[in-house]
Design a protein around this nucleic acid. Structure first.
Lengths: 193, 193
DNA sequence: TTGGACATGTAAGCCGTTACATGATTAC
DNA sequence: GTAATCATGTAACGGCTTACATGTCCAA
């Protein structure tokens, strides 16, 4: 009698690869990793401690990383290093085509139902989004130009620059759309006065 | 003795608002709604049947929508209509500022770790992303006509045009970045030959 | 007659956030 | 002395996808 085979859904989480990726560039503790993620790839990727720490344990048990205690400075930190096996898994994953993204944009959803809203509320949503986008844009621009002047032949910086450039392009496009949209809606508001 | 109070986490799901929003524009069945979402707001919002049907039940039990059986054409469909109470909830939600989006871009993650990869694989990822982005432009035309057929009198035209315009801006920016990035990487590959 | 679209659901289970728990150290 | 940051974890829970279940109608 044949057993009903469990379909064995393949794991969809990419946390392990994000971690392996970071550790391929520098060894660090979980806490440090979180901070690094926040101020490097934070604008397109994020991980929580609730994901990081358990995944580090799993990766260690699988031999993908090695964990050693660092007692320097009498605070204990757990430093993780990627192993050959871990690096191999990372490299294998990098060859696979990225899966389609799932996007959910609440601002656009609210805009789409704009006919049910007060036009003023919609305008406010757009304006505060514009504030946010401006801040992000400025931040990208500064990092980008400083990166361009420093160390152009560094191999890791090339890819860092490319991802940053994505952010710049995306933010610029969003700002342009926001400006156009805000001015369309404002024109209509003054017309109806 | 004071009971430890559960913090009563507020619900983060926006499915109910997406449904109320659709039903504010036209009454329809769950199945129809899914199709409508796919070819109107699908590029920035999606819902699965596993979310839609249970949420419809809940909304009905709360009096936010009314469900009636449609036996015309001897196939039974459940048609849902928004109630005053439902419309009020939708309007209230529309006044609230959208929460910050969580983005996870796997392509960018792989790019960021590009120094561990074969440059050719990275290039292939970028090129197939470019194919997809090009197709998206064509899809926007479909969305345009599908929305026109639903809304021939163009009451909501302004708002769906705005959301569509976002898509166009975003896709255009992505394509520009892709072209720039691909040509940078290709230049390097030929140089190293 | 078989596959695909129409149509409505349920249930398992993964993913990830958030809250909680603990404790040391540093800054004000 | 107290708040913030460093540092490592666990557990509950919500949200969503996916697989499953069921049945009709239609076209090739």
């Amino acid at each position: 009698m044949k057993e009903k085979q469990k379909p064995a859904r393949k794991s969809k989480s990419k946390t392990r690869f994000a971690i392996l990726g970071i550790l391929s560039q520098k060894e660090c503790s979980g806490y440090e990793m979180k901070k690094f993620i926040e101020n490097s790839i934070g604008f397109f990727w994020q991980e929580s401690f609730g994901q990081i720490y358990p995944t580090l344990k799993i990766l260690e048990s699988e031999g993908k990383i090695k964990t050693i205690e660092d007692n320097a400075g009498d605070k204990t930190r757990l430093i993780h290093k990627i192993t050959k096996s871990g690096r191999a898994e990372l490299k294998a994953w990098l060859t696979i085509q990225p899966e389609p993204e799932v996007i959910r944009n609440e601002l656009l959803l609210k805009l789409f139902f704009g006919s049910e809203a007060q036009e003023n509320d919609i305008l406010n949503h757009l304006k505060s989004e514009r504030e946010k986008a401006l801040k992000v844009f400025g931040k990208y621009q500064n990092i980008d130009s400083s990166l361009k002047s420093v160390n152009p032949e560094n191999i890791n910086k090339k890819f860092w620059q490319i991802t940053l450039s994505y952010g710049v392009h995306a933010a610029r496009a969003e700002l342009k759309w926001l400006d156009e949209t805000i001015s369309i809606l404002e024109r209509e508001l003054t017309k109806s006065d």
